[in-house]
């Protein structure tokens, strides 16, 4: 890795204050949602971030994208420090980093047509307008496996998997370098999960994307990731290549996560459970 990584996160911390008091709020405690995590992603690679619900994965995503202000730490994108930049200062950088959201029902504005949802980022960043905009949006829709006729539909006319495809088209509209996918398949059923992951995989090759891929299911992450970081209680407990983490987990928590991955063959499943028991 002679080239500088696209994204470099160092000691990122996000604490949420717990306030209490009758008239004047005072801080009584903190939730350490993200408690000093560091990782870096080289250009064109995928880092899988795994952990249980509440381990701070989503908070970490939002803190990286500056959707919430990190308490401390550094986030470097192409060598430029972005932690602590104001919303206005971030605006030109937003073209380069986009997010795919977890809930395909809450992440699409129900009052907007698909064409608007996918086209708004292009309009906002003044990339395209008019008939050019429409053409580009329709191309995007077709690229993610929807039809260009879906341009005038509303989100409620689509299924969860289709909605997630709309979300992916929206994230790709600005041709970003980095895509942060916050549990993009958790809300979908298994057969559709595979389709979406394969789509993301294809898109990565096609557009040279760099992914930060978040999931609670290590089985899902293994398929798509070059490296995996395991997060627990706001900290990264294990970090390594995908094979290394999955085949030779060093941390107990990682072993538990791996043991929770369902295996289609019951015999193999039984063997592994016994193996995990002997190791732990």
């Amino acid at each position: 890795m002679s080239e500088a990584p696209l994204l470099e996160v160092t000691d990122l911390v996000k604490h949420f204050p717990i306030k209490s008091g009758i008239l004047i709020d005072r801080e009584v405690d903190q939730v350490r949602a993200v408690d000093g995590i560091s990782f870096s992603i080289p250009r064109g690679q995928t880092l899988g971030l795994v952990g249980e619900s509440g381990s701070g994965k989503s908070t970490a995503c939002r803190a990286v994208l500056q959707l919430i202000k990190p308490t401390s730490g550094s986030v470097r994108f192409e060598g430029q420090e972005i932690a602590g930049l104001s919303r206005r200062q971030m605006r030109p950088l937003r073209r380069q980093m986009q997010m795919i959201f977890q809930d395909p029902y809450a992440s699409l504005n129900p009052r907007k047509r698909v064409g608007q949802i996918v086209g708004d980022p292009l309009k906002r960043q003044k990339v395209a307008s008019g008939s050019d905009l429409r053409k580009r949006v329709q191309e995007l829709l077709e690229r993610v496996g929807l039809a260009s006729e879906h341009y005038n539909r509303f989100p409620h006319e689509f299924s969860g998997g289709q909605r997630q495809r709309i979300g992916i088209a929206r994230a790709l509209a600005l041709q970003p370098k980095l895509v942060i996918a916050d549990e993009p398949v958790s809300a979908l059923d298994v057969s559709i999960q595979a389709q979406i992951i394969n789509l993301l995989d294809d898109l990565q090759d096609e557009f040279g994307l760099t992914y930060l891929f978040v999931a609670h299911d290590i089985g899902v992450v293994r398929h798509i990731s070059d490296r995996i970081a395991v997060m627990h209680n706001g900290k990264i407990v294990e970090h390594g290549t995908a094979d290394q983490v999955c085949e030779h987990p060093a941390d107990d928590y990682t072993k538990q996560l791996l043991a929770a991955v369902p295996i289609p063959d019951p015999r193999e499943s039984r063997e592994r459970r016994q193996g995990a028991g002997a190791a732990g």
Partner: peptide, 16 residues
Amino acid sequence: KEFVEAAIAQGAGSLR
């Protein structure tokens, strides 16, 4: 809602 976050992530201002 996440669609508000999505708009901010695209660089939309508060008024927008």
